[in-house]
Amino acid sequence: MVTTRKFSLKRQRSLELLLRLNRLYPDATCTLTYQTPVQLLVATILSAQCTDERVNKVTPALFQKFPDALALANADIEELENLVRSTGFYRNKAKNIKAACQMIIEKFNSQVPKQMEQLLQLPGVARKTANVVLAHAYGIIVGVTVDTHVKRLSQRLGLTENSDPIKIERDLMRLIPQPDWENWSIRLIYHGRAVCKAKSPACDKCSLVDLCLFTKE
């Protein structure tokens, strides 16, 4: 009974947080620049441990040279590495991008898959990347994108006690209505960038402060 009530209260708080985030960032959307599903896939792979701003500076030249899965699958690996070097971990990212595009050509008829299970077969693709691609390339919402901002803020807001992204995603999927799963992630990312920063959260300027557990520590 206590556990059920505790969860009910947490869910009510989650819905209020969602409402406020929607009001704070009504026009929030994916900040990666892309034109096709494969370009979004590549950009999301590059965004690992890198800012979207930096990725968006790299991808114009990358996509001009290699605009589609076939071109990326056949790309010279050293040239690919040089083009994505500034995003960090460039060797591994270039290798995964090339291998993922080869699999898309060979196994998925040159189309980025529309199913989570198939996307997770691609090199360099975990649930975070797959959720972004499904939501923004195809409008398919099957999970909650958990990046560093979503992880940090969900913990601070007391919505999860977990540190593993998959477990955090499961916790959030229980609290947030499915149609809002991706909206939640995008708006929480905006709030993490603007207000609730990792090292110096601006609690005095935060519109969520009365619902936040972090400030009570």
Rank of each mutant, 00 (worst) to 15 (best):
T3W: 02
T3M: 13
F7Q: 09
L9N: 06
R13P: 02
R20A: 05
L21C: 06
R23E: 14
L24V: 09
P26Q: 09
A28R: 10
T33Q: 11
Q35M: 01
Q35G: 10
Q39W: 01
Q39M: 00
S47R: 09
A48K: 09
A48R: 08
E53H: 08
V55A: 07
V58D: 04
P60N: 03
L62W: 02
D68T: 00
L72M: 15
A75M: 04
D76V: 06
N82L: 14
L83P: 01
R85S: 08
Y90Q: 04
A94T: 02
M103I: 04
V112D: 04
Q118H: 14
L120E: 01
P123E: 11
V125Q: 04
K128C: 06
Y138D: 03
I141A: 08
V144W: 12
T145Y: 10
D147T: 06
T148S: 13
R152P: 01
L153W: 11
L153T: 04
Q155T: 06
L157W: 13
G158Q: 13
L159E: 03
N162E: 15
S163P: 00
K167M: 12
E169Y: 00
E169D: 07
L172E: 12
M173F: 10
R174C: 11
L175A: 09
L175W: 07
I176L: 05
P177T: 10
Q178E: 12
D180C: 04
W184S: 05
S185E: 13
R187C: 00
L188E: 07
G192E: 07
G192D: 05
A194M: 08
C203S: 05
D204H: 13
K205D: 10
C206G: 05
S207W: 01
S207K: 13
L208R: 07
C212L: 13
T215M: 09
T215P: 02
E217V: 05
